[in-house]
């Protein structure tokens, strides 16, 4: 196998997926921005106005990182799962299977679009939040790490589900039963010590807690867990997911007959 990278091939996958993504701007960007606007308005502005400060920050500032993270996770998962599933469903995945592209190039092509969609979604929410006076980013590098890192983790998870799913119903199962519930109990709206003591251990076992906590630290400097632990969890999950997805591509799972 030639070891050199097929850059033109990789860029072509990215161009193709960007073209597909930009065919549905309302679904991809406007929908999460409206959803975030409603969250910010109701929970942050209306309800939050009656809640005292948390760690020296307004409730809106406290919940905003969670709202951003919810949408980053959704954007990443939906982008990659639908991208991979539709390529299989419409069979145009065969175009890449018959061409001299490596599995790493195929996976990277998916992930670049995932990161693009997630970053644009996150930036749009920050702009909306700025209208309500809450969009501070204390550490830009850290903010970028959390948005991009979590997008990659869920881009890989979505890729896996896109390979596994055999119908549209299966495509949504993980989102409905795991991603949404875990993200909501991962500290979007509350601190860990607000939870009943018997439930607090669950937060520490929930990776969403580290993602939200990390992003919150990058935005307002508030944290409930050691930074390095969260970074380690994210990089570890990303590495494990990448190896799994790469292996599935290599054996042709869901791709080849």
């Amino acid at each position: 196998m030639g070891a050199s990278i097929n850059w033109v091939g990789l860029l072509t996958i990215i161009r193709r997926e960007m073209t597909r993504l930009l065919r549905v701007p309302i679904q991809a960007f406007v929908a999460p921005w409206i959803s975030a606007l409603l969250f910010i308005f109701i929970f942050g502005y209306v309800v939050g106005g009656r809640i005292s400060q948390i760690g020296g920050h307004s409730y809106l500032e406290f919940v905003l990182p969670g709202i951003v993270m919810l949408n980053v996770v959704n954007a990443a998962f939906l982008q990659s799962s639908s991208q991979v599933y539709f390529a299989r469903f419409m069979r145009y995945v065969e175009e890449t299977l018959v061409s001299p592209l490596s599995y790493v190039e195929m996976i990277s092509g998916v992930l670049v679009t995932v990161v693009f969609r997630s970053v644009v979604t996150a930036l749009g929410i920050l702009v909306i939040a700025a209208l309500f006076g809450a969009s501070s980013v204390a550490g830009v590098g850290e903010f970028v790490f959390w948005v991009v890192g979590v997008a990659i983790v869920f881009g890989l998870l979505g890729n896996l589900v896109g390979l596994w799913a055999n119908n549209f119903e299966q495509l949504t199962i993980l989102n409905v039963f795991f991603i949404t519930p875990l993200s909501f109990v991962g500290g979007v709206f509350n601190t860990i010590d607000m939870l009943p003591s018997w439930l607090q251990w669950m937060a520490w076992a929930n990776p969403f807690f580290y993602f939200i906590n990390g992003l919150r630290h990058s935005m307002i400097g508030f944290t409930e867990a050691p930074e390095l632990l969260g970074i380690g969890v994210t990089i570890g999950l990303g590495a494990v997911m990448f190896v799994i997805v790469w292996r599935l591509y290599a054996i042709g799972y869901g791709l080849r007959e």
Partner: peptide, 14 residues
């Protein structure tokens, strides 16, 4: 045109 362009791209054509 896109179909042909993309396929050429997968094969590394400039």
């Amino acid at each position: 045109r896109q179909i042909l362009d993309w396929m050429g791209g997968y094969f590394g054509m400039e």
